[in-house]
Design a protein around this nucleic acid. Structure first.
Lengths: 247, 247
DNA sequence: CGCAGTATTGAAATTTCTCAAGCCGAGTGG
DNA sequence: CCACTCGGCTTGAGAAATTTCAATACTGCG
């Protein structure tokens, strides 16, 4: 499943890296030039394939090119707890720059494509170009804000609100990344996995889903989310996108 | 309640800042010198007092000197969801360096004492001294790892394991910070607040607590945690401190 | 001493999970 | 082209966990 990408894609890959960093800070010409020098290896992922595992000591950072990646804990029972989802333009494990051992795994939710950038050159780049460092740093801080929201979501909201909030977040982020057409976005997650994300059983997910459907707020099937009534969905969820710290 | 600290304490405060940074990276003489130049304002906090609130745009970063601080979300219902606790030597809101608006609040759990370091000089310092930047960055990454663990804890563990895990984490971190004497540490949190931390009702907290007590694993009263049987507590909790990324 | 906040207990009400069966839809091989 | 199969979705109903309500202790502090 792993394969080197052709040479041309190196330029595309570093352009994508530049875009990822630019989302979180202002870069000058030097910063941009240095980012464009970064070399990477492209890789296609099969559905469900792991990119890194809990306990690994990764040597490269991942940038999502296409598809969706997820971070998850493997519990002693063997069960998973999904922690976050990442779409095109996201870097799910920038933290590896400074946390040597992975405390969670990263996998592809459906077919996906990534770039892998060796960590050492990235670290060196961050050392030399503070603005780049700050941009990546900020991206990890937004990740943390999203984790905080998940704590509240999974701990303090009703099942229906919890699901609604999850959909709001995914949809909002997809839209921000330019991945929404006609109020629908890709969300290749099964109801069972939704349960492992939100701390609910499969049956509870299914029933909460039906409430949202009957309320004509969303449609969710075949790995795709359609938002039919954003305003109602949003208020059902208590969704306030402030925590995403976008612009 | 706010008051300037005497001049002498400035030197102590910057030494504490140096210590906080040193926990997360190797600093050279220049780094250390620059850190020692940082000026701060000491502040005493009453029990329950807020340091920053959701929506604020803080201008200073907090370093805990004494006591315990907590981060929390305020939900639309008015209810709180506690997200993390911080003890001496921790910096609960380094993220404010790059996330302008607070997405959560920070309060004192009991009486506490903090140093406040203006953000702008800190940012400038990070820009000039990459090692310092990396150390603070890393501290925010460990925070994020702890948030991830909280997602799993609150979503996928039984009430008893959840509580046990929380105690393991607090105790382990207190020990690492040198705040444990004779297997007990300060933990000024009421059972109700424990519920708002772990996503359980007050009654459930109380009953889970009794299980741990009857199992002779812990004693918890008057804001103090005694660990009577670490090994059993740890296995009850499935606690693996790896995620704390302590050297 | 007594108040106020915190902890404990019991029991009913509710939510959530588990179990188990049936359904649906896409892909496969006859 | 259709039956078959597999994974994922849906449904019902009983079991179990959890919350809520409400009353009773406890404790530290003024």
């Amino acid at each position: 499943m792993e394969e080197s990408a052709p040479f041309m894609s190196h330029r595309q890959a570093s352009a994508r890296l530049l875009a990822a960093a630019s989302r979180h800070g202002t870069l000058d010409a030097i910063d941009k030039g240095r980012l464009r020098e970064m070399r990477s290896r492209g890789r296609k992922l099969a559905a469900g394939e792991d990119v890194v595992r809990q306990g690994d000591r990764p040597i490269a950072a991942v940038l999502v090119v296409r598809g969706m990646l997820a971070r998850y804990h493997t519990l002693p029972s063997g069960d998973r707890q999904y922690l976050a989802y990442h779409i095109s333009g996201d870097m799910p494990d920038v933290q590896s720059l400074f946390l040597v051992v992975m405390d969670h795994s990263v996998c592809a939710m459906g077919q996906a494509e990534i770039d892998q950038f060796p960590l050492e050159p990235l670290r060196e780049l961050c050392r030399q170009q503070p603005s780049i460092s700050f941009a990546f740093w900020r991206s990890t801080l937004v990740d943390a804000a999203i984790f905080r929201q998940s704590i509240s979501n999974n701990s303090a909201r009703t099942h229906v609100a919890r699901l609604a909030h999850f959909f709001c977040e995914q949809f909002h982020r997809a839209r921000d990344a330019g991945l929404v057409q006609t109020s629908s976005c890709s969300l290749p997650i099964s109801q069972f996995q939704l349960g492992q994300t939100l701390g609910m059983s499969l049956v509870s997910v299914n029933r909460a889903l039906q409430v949202l459907r009957r309320g004509k707020m969303i449609e969710f099937r075949g790995g795709r989310l359609d938002v039919l009534d954003w305003s109602t969905l949003r208020s059902t969820a208590d969704f306030d996108p402030m925590y995403l710290h976008i612009a």
